[in-house]
Simulated scan of single mutants.
Amino acid sequence: MEVVPSLKRKTLIDFAKRQSHLGSIISSDVYRSYRKLEDKGYKHESQLYNPKKSPDHLHWLDTVLSNAKALVGGIFHWLSSRHLQSYLDEFCYRFNRRKHEGDLFSRLPHHCIGVKTITHRKLVEACMQSQELFV
């Protein structure tokens, strides 16, 4: 998942280039901006979304979005647009490991050992720099 600035054609095409291979099949609703994907080398399947007539079309998208909304409402209660990508990254991490919840705690020491330690000073400096970007 990635925060994008708009749903304009160029934005969606750039996203598709970063996240998929040419020739990939992209399923979507009938939003106009998706139409240009075929001109750029993707196979595009669009369908007016109706879960009663076609329950499998975009089923996983509905599942992921409803789980993301539940995470926001149940844990965060509110989102800051400034940190939206971080929230999405955490959601994806949790969603991709949803069937291995029992392993999350036991894997924590493994991941802590595998990363470079950051000092408090460097953490504060990084936070200050990121704040300057959003002012």
Rank of each mutant, 00 (worst) to 15 (best):
L65W: 09
G74H: 01
I118C: 01
R18T: 13
I13P: 00
S66R: 02
R97V: 09
H83D: 06
H44L: 14
L48V: 12
H83V: 01
G73Y: 10
L65Y: 05
I75T: 11
S20Y: 02
F15G: 00
S86N: 11
S28L: 04
R82P: 00
H83G: 00
E2L: 06
A16G: 06
E38F: 07
T117G: 02
S20E: 04
S46F: 05
S80T: 03
A16P: 04
L123Y: 15
S20D: 06
A16F: 03
E125F: 00
D29M: 04
W78N: 10
I25T: 14
F91K: 10
C127E: 11
L84K: 00
V115W: 03
E132N: 06
L22N: 04
I13W: 04
F76T: 07
V3S: 01
K40P: 03
S86A: 14
H120P: 00
E125L: 07
D14N: 08
V3W: 07
K40M: 11
I75K: 10
F15V: 14
M1L: 10
I13D: 02
K8E: 14
H44A: 05
R82C: 02
V72N: 06
Y87F: 13
E101F: 11
D39R: 05
H59V: 04
F91C: 10
A16N: 03
Q85R: 07
E90N: 10
S106F: 10
V124E: 04
D103T: 13
K43G: 01
S27M: 14
P5G: 02
V115E: 05
I26W: 09
K8W: 09
H83N: 05
Q47A: 01
K10Q: 13
L88I: 12
Q47D: 03
N96T: 14
S54Q: 10
S54R: 11
I26R: 06
C92M: 15
D56V: 01
L104I: 13
E90V: 15
E90T: 14
A68R: 05
F15R: 06
G73Q: 09
A70Y: 09
L37I: 05
K116D: 07
Q85M: 05
K17L: 13
Q129T: 05
P51H: 02
V72H: 06
E2M: 09
N96A: 12
G41N: 03
A126F: 04
S81K: 13
Q47N: 04
H77S: 06
F134L: 04
L88F: 13
K40C: 12
E45F: 12
G73V: 09
L65A: 04
L37A: 03
S28Y: 03
S130T: 08
E101L: 15
D14P: 01
F95G: 03
H120C: 06
S46K: 05
D89A: 11
P109D: 07
S46H: 01
R9M: 12
V4D: 01
S81L: 11
M128F: 04
F105G: 00
G114F: 06
D62M: 07
H111F: 12
V72A: 01
H110L: 12
D56K: 06
G41R: 04
K10A: 14
